[in-house]
Design a protein around this nucleic acid. Structure first.
Ligand code: FES
Ligand code: FES
Lengths: 161, 161
DNA sequence: GAAATCTTGACTAATTTAGTTGGGAAAGTA
DNA sequence: TACTTTCCCAACTAAATTAGTCAAGATTTC
């Protein structure tokens, strides 16, 4: 199993897009600055996200990226898979052949663990994350430079949603 | 999060020890051969397992390793942690400071995921694994070179347990 | 046609993985 | 005592991966 900054950045960037949905296309430069991610690295990640239709793009001035479908329909597992991190924890990648072409002693353990992780991540959508208070807090800080807790109690829908 | 052959080998080797419990100390050479793991690599892993008292050792001819406590009391999570793979999936390792010394947008997501994995692995003991039919099948094959399915229905307790 | 933005591919330093190599130290056995 | 078996330990290494950078180009808007 791999879960590195690649996957974390992809989810973070997608969540940033979701939060700013309704403001028109969002540039990678904005995301890079808000989330503290290298712009060129983001470019690589969005290339993959676009191939999976998780985002759509518009070029030229005023352009940028938007979600490819509704935040409610994009699951964390998809995003991570799109940038190529696979959540499988078996050594054989499901083939039951990691020892001498036969099943090793612990295959089922890793297989079950993978199912757990897979199920967990595929049941959380970007919308679910946005609904969390802690996420709204951080988003607010990123917008204004500091946390304004009062805004958070209003369950303010971000402009246009 | 890291889950690589290091952690897998450690669990596999510990399970091998559990299966052969009651046969006296088991040599690393035996484990290496049965499980297809490099002997010197096993030595490194067992050095760590011993420091955590998960195994105890006897030197000299007839020596080898045994479980440090009962199979029922050794949990997979402990074994993986002992060889230094940490199941934490947050970037900040729990410190809430991965972006500019403040919490990033997705901290809680990874934190919750880590809890899931942690809980899962810490509720499965070596004994639980041994009780699985698939594990007994593989162990049987490793012993005799091929699977003898008839043995598996007798829930045969391995010699001396 | 200039500027903003996405798009692509090649390159790279640092780190990690999965080992190997080579030496010991302790214990049993003759 | 000598010999062998086992554990113990530390240093080294090839290959892969990570987290990027760099440079060039394609589209679109103004
Ligand atoms: S992990 Fe699938 S056979 Fe070993
Ligand atoms: S993962 Fe903890 S603050 Fe980002």
């Amino acid at each position: 199993m791999k879960l590195t900054t690649k996957g974390r950045y992809a989810v973070t960037a997608m969540l940033d897009l979701a939060i700013h949905y309704g403001e028109g296309p969002i540039t990678l430069a904005d995301i890079a600055q808000r989330q503290g991610i290298s712009l060129s690295y983001l470019e690589q990640l969005f290339s993959r996200l676009r191939k999976q239709a998780l985002v759509s793009s518009v070029r030229g001035p005023g352009g940028g990226y938007s979600l490819g479908k509704e935040a409610r329909e994009i699951f964390i597992g998809e995003v991570i898979a799109a940038v190529d991190e696979n959540m499988d924890t078996t050594k054989c990648h499901g083939a039951h052949n990691c020892q001498n072409n036969e099943r090793c002693l612990t295959h089922d353990l890793w297989s079950d663990l993978s199912d757990q992780i897979y199920t967990y991540l595929n049941n959380i959508s970007l919308q679910d994350l946005m609904d969390r208070k802690a996420v709204r807090e951080v988003a607010e800080r990123q917008e204004h430079g500091e946390v304004d807790a009062s805004v958070l109690d209003q369950v303010s829908s971000p402009a246009g949603v």
